[in-house]
Design a protein around this nucleic acid. Structure first.
Lengths: 341, 341
DNA sequence: ATACTAATCCGAAACGTTTTCGGCGTCAAG
DNA sequence: CTTGACGCCGAAAACGTTTCGGATTAGTAT
């Protein structure tokens, strides 16, 4: 069934050693011999048994990625766009991806141990860091190559290779933008507290308010679940309790789109009555109605950078820049509305 | 560095054989011995070398999936939702996913050969079938387990396990729905011709018109690229050339959302002036403004079904239902507008 | 005492590949 | 003629696991 080096060796009359060397391009094999062997190999349709090769070489040319299971968030927005960048870059570098879907928790760590200690991948990519991230501790402890999309929460060490956007400055910029448009009462819909970047975004909000001399009111801040409906529900709560709010910042685009729905369902106009801003700049943001003001993160490019960084670490290089903080840009669109009095 | 059976054997004083049998639950090993060995294994933090195990067993507990590279479509909508279902189901069955991103073409086939003949997976999942799909021919020829999301174009054999929705009937239903609302001039934005289901959707359109006694006008039919901008541009073309059109059916939601943008940019109202319908029922459809009438496909569930079917084939079972045609349901939302005169 | 069974355990082979080390010619330089 | 270098090739070991076919012992029936 399976064609092996042995078959080619028998056909050609050479040894397995020579066949192997001929096919992998060693120099100490006669040109004619090599040609002969290569001809037989293609004639037989030889494909190396990668399992055997990986096992022998202790090298898989595979990168591991554990995605959140049962998480709708995956399919719309940040995660899948990141995966697209990772997939494209990996394929360019001739790496494959090993993926397992696991919800955060004990099973997730089991999967990490299985995949990493089981030698299935050369390196891991971690996304959406959490406070005191157990996954990072494990990989650091084992000395296994990995890169991280995101970094530790404010105050945590983050002494590992990562790529992140400066969300603190980004949110600060949005606040500034809204202040310039005349808003004084700005609501904030944060991600869940266990996510690492939540702290940065919260701080950015405070920083923006402070710079404008607007007092920080904790009751304007609420945690959502990063999903459409979370943004919707948080917005309802905020608007019910604090009708003076004239602007809402959601910490990702999905929640911002949900917020727009809630606003529109009240018969209010997004932009004119209540300004909305998101974070991520997923494709749906641009094509939403009205188009959503948001922070553009180069997610696809981040995915590519992660792969390149990881592969260079795997290859034993010592990249100079292992901790990258990417500047983000504010995309002003119609959901901002216009200048207030 | 790596803990192997050998280490446990030395520690425990038993042979490698016995250690292996103790850990994998064979019956012919003394209960105390097993306990002793297990204790040592956990103390040492033993994790089996999966590469070695897979190599030895010729079984990887991994499913392969090749996703389209450089294809934005992936990150929004059908593909990633399918992957979510596949990932969740695979993880439940203790399978991992091996993923490679390849654009259709020669490199894609190389990747198939590499992964399949290289023994890296137990089975493959093929999505988005094409006319005369080379991938299917290859897997059939090799006798390698695989399942397909979608099936061959009309007239092609499709003699392999697949799961598909009845898109012909679905589009026919939309046409009927629009006819009932009073529309007589209905545009159709098809996917590219090389995609297998394009034929079915086209036929469904014709069927719906015929049933209503409306003549088929080929100039109302145009091919888009499945992406937002494709829907936008196709709609501009259609409306420029045929202002009598009062409804547009796009063959996926992304193009339908693009169509809505084009309509809104002309100052027309989606629903009131021009009705729009899509296909897939991605999350963005429900939350769009106005919400999009579309055909609901249980994409996530299809992903799960694909995995279960594939695993049962791998396990040597002969599933009774290997060719599933799922009924789809029309989701009527505001983009349909109301009854015309 | 012998033969048989059951309970435990182990040696060795095998999966397909890569690589180390060395062998055998041949040829040129000394 | 000797020596060394060089070009080409092969034997064998190794990666860690599973499993086949015994081997050993103790216990039991004959």
């Amino acid at each position: 069934m399976q064609i092996t080096l042995k078959d080619i060796a028998q056909q050609s009359g050479y040894s397995i050693t020579t066949v192997s060397r001929a096919l992998t391009g060693y120099s100490d094999v006669n040109a004619e011999t090599r040609q002969h062997i290569q001809d037989i190999a293609t004639a037989l349709g030889y494909q190396p048994n990668l399992l055997a090769r990986q096992f022998r070489n202790q090298r898989t040319y595979t990168l591991g990625l554990i995605i959140p299971a049962h998480d709708q968030t995956f399919s719309t927005g940040f995660y899948s766009q990141l995966m697209l960048g990772i997939g494209d870059a990996a394929s360019l570098e001739h790496y494959d991806l090993l993926i397992s879907a696991q919800a955060p928790g004990e099973d997730e760590m089991i999967a990490y141990r299985r995949i990493v200690a089981g030698n299935r991948v050369d390196g891991m990519i971690i996304a959406r860091t959490r406070r005191n991230d157990e996954r990072i501790l494990y990989l650091q402890g084992r000395g296994h190559p990995f890169v991280v999309s995101g970094r530790g929460a404010p105050g945590e060490p983050s002494d590992y290779p990562y790529i992140d956007v400066d969300s603190q400055m980004a949110i600060c910029t949005i606040v500034q933008h809204f202040v310039e448009l005349g808003h004084r009462h700005i609501g904030l819909i944060l991600p869940p507290e266990e996510i690492a970047f939540t702290g940065f975004r919260h701080e950015g909000y405070c920083e923006g308010l402070a710079a404008a001399g607007i007092p920080y009111r904790p009751e304007y801040v609420i945690n959502g679940d990063l999903w459409w409906s979370g943004g919707y529900e948080c917005t309802e709560t905020l608007l019910d309790d604090y009708p003076m709010l004239s602007a809402i910042i959601a910490c990702n685009d999905l929640m911002a789109l949900g917020a727009m729905n809630a606003i529109q369902e009240r018969g209010l106009q997004v932009g004119a009555d209540i300004a909305v801003a998101g974070f991520d700049d997923i494709t749906a943001a641009e094509y939403a109605y009205p188009p959503l003001t948001t922070i553009h993160q180069p997610i696809y490019e981040i995915g590519q950078m992660l792969v390149k960084l990881l592969i260079s670490i795997i290859s034993g290089a010592t990249p100079t820049e292992t901790q990258v903080l990417i500047p983000s840009t504010l995309m002003v669109r119609a959901s901002s509305g216009i200048q207030r009095i």
